[in-house]
Nucleic acid binder design. Structure first.
Length: 408
RNA sequence: GUGAGCAUAGCUCAAUUGGUCAGAGCACUGGAUUGUGGAUCCAGGGGUUGAGGGUUCAAGUCCCUUUGUUCACCCCA
């Protein structure tokens, strides 16, 4: 039993998984920069108020999932549960609207939510997110999907499904919600207890209940598609047209709802099988009013976040190509040999070679074994004889061929 | 916050109905091969069976508590 362990729902990412994570991060940076996204590094902690206002007071995230504490001056601080609120804050605070429009940013790092962990869900989890400010045009939405397609392709993830929906705007959504409430209220007695609550708290959630009984009722529920205002309909139709044009396949899913309050119009999820109940790998949407609500100029925006644990879970079996840096292993006998090896190691490392030096108090045999375990390209053996003669043996490990090298 | 399963060596797992049950494989270390790896053989280290309490002549095995973990619900990436 270890005395210390990680907190619940928090884990270390250790080799060999580091390689996969590096790979994912590299691909994202490569692809995102092609689309003009600049990296933005936002803090892990913010004033609690930021998330309350951004994500929404009534949401589960704010109500029961935030890591919130008082700092030494008594201010309420929160470990970020998501990235968008911070990026919007930064956008306004740093006057990033001065950059040529549209402004595109991506970020990468850990998020924190106090939830019960399960497959694909952790209390500290990593996201790569991206946000675009200053364009309300559906072409921007389409570019996002184009970029994500490229990302998924390069990262090697197939069999994903893009599902899109429009959840309207402050003009048309209230109408929809009231028609939804009206409809479900009529069937209130037949709804599961969760849905009874949803009816009060979060009517949009009624649509994605997994309960069978509710499913039957749900079939006849009004769809948001029928309630959208002209502007939202146009936006949505143009987006679909642009997706078709680019050959990006998608499914229209009028049941997609986003959990955070700030979303408008386009909402989407990219899902994959085989990662458990949490099958959403990427999710996001448009939020045309958030910048203004945060005190900035009226600025339309759209963004998304990729769940890295979920992505890594899907790519777990992918073979990572080892970047081969050849290893020179020094098997040394005695302290004089150590001195010599250290000097030679410095030279080799300057040339970009990987060097490991054996423990001079270990037997030659065990040092050879170690070299083998490290998969050394070659071993240089230095002992008394070599020090005296100035010539050492260099053994190539794959075929055992030995040659002499000058060590002076 | 709710529900269910699991918890034995570094890892993967054994241990008939509570009765030599604390084991195996892999890994690790050493030896066979006095200064030369991978194969083989041999040997060794390592566990108060997650923790605490209880029942019993006897608990890894049954009961309670607790912690962790897995999966699902809520919700979400």
């Amino acid at each position: 039993m270890n005395k210390y362990s990680t907190l619940k729902g928090v884990c270390d990412i250790v080799p060999p998984d580091d390689k996969l994570w590096d790979f994912i991060e590299e691909i994202s940076k490569e692809v995102f920069s092609i689309y003009g996204f600049k990296n933005i590094r936002i803090p892990v902690i913010e004033y609690t108020e930021l998330f309350k206002r951004g994500i929404g007071e009534g949401t589960d995230i704010v109500e029961k999932e935030m890591y919130t504490f008082s700092d030494r001056s008594g201010r309420s601080i929160t470990l970020r549960p998501e990235g968008t609120a911070s990026v919007v804050r930064s956008y306004i605070e740093n006057n990033l609207s001065d950059l040529p429009s549209p402004q595109k940013f991506f970020y990468l790092g850990p998020m924190f939510r106090y939830e019960r962990p399960q497959k694909g869900r952790y209390r500290q989890f990593y996201q790569i997110g991206a946000e675009v400010f200053g364009s309300s045009n559906p072409s921007t939405d389409a570019e996002i999907f184009s970029m994500l397609n490229m990302f998924l392709d390069k990262v090697g993830l197939t069999n994903t499904q893009l599902q899109i929906n429009s959840i309207g705007c402050p003009i048309c959504r209230p109408n929809y919600i009231s028609s939804l409430i009206e409809f479900f209220s009529k069937h209130s007695d037949n709804l599961c207890t969760d849905c009874q609550n949803r009816l009060q708290k979060n009517p949009l959630r009624l649509l994605d209940c997994k309960n069978e009984g509710c499913g039957i009722i749900k079939k006849d529920a009004p769809l948001i598609t029928q309630s959208l205002c002209g502007e939202c309909v146009n936006h949505h139709n143009q987006l679909k047209h642009l997706l078709d044009l680019q050959g990006i396949s998608f499914i229209e899913n009028p049941l997609i709802v986003r959990g955070l309050d700030y979303y408008t119009k386009t909402a989407f999820e990219i899902t994959a099988d085989h990662i458990g109940a949490q099958n959403t790998v990427i999710a996001g949407g448009r939020y045309d009013n958030l910048v203004h609500e945060f005190g900035g100029a009226k600025t339309p925006a759209i963004g998304f976040a990729i769940g890295l644990e979920r992505l890594a879970l899907l790519l777990k079996d992918k073979e990572m190509i080892d970047k081969k840096v050849p290893l020179i292993y020094f098997a040394i006998l005695g302290d004089k040999a150590l001195d010599k090896a250290l000097l030679m190691a410095k030279k080799y490392r300057k040339e970009g070679l990987w060097v490991e030096i054996g423990n001079p108090s270990d037997s030659l045999k065990s040092q050879m074994k170690k070299a083998d375990k490290f998969n050394a390209e070659s071993v240089i053996i230095i002992g008394e004889n070599e020090i005296n003669s100035g010539i050492a043996i260099k053994k190539r490990m794959n075929d055992g061929v030995q040659e002499e090298v000058n060590i002076n």
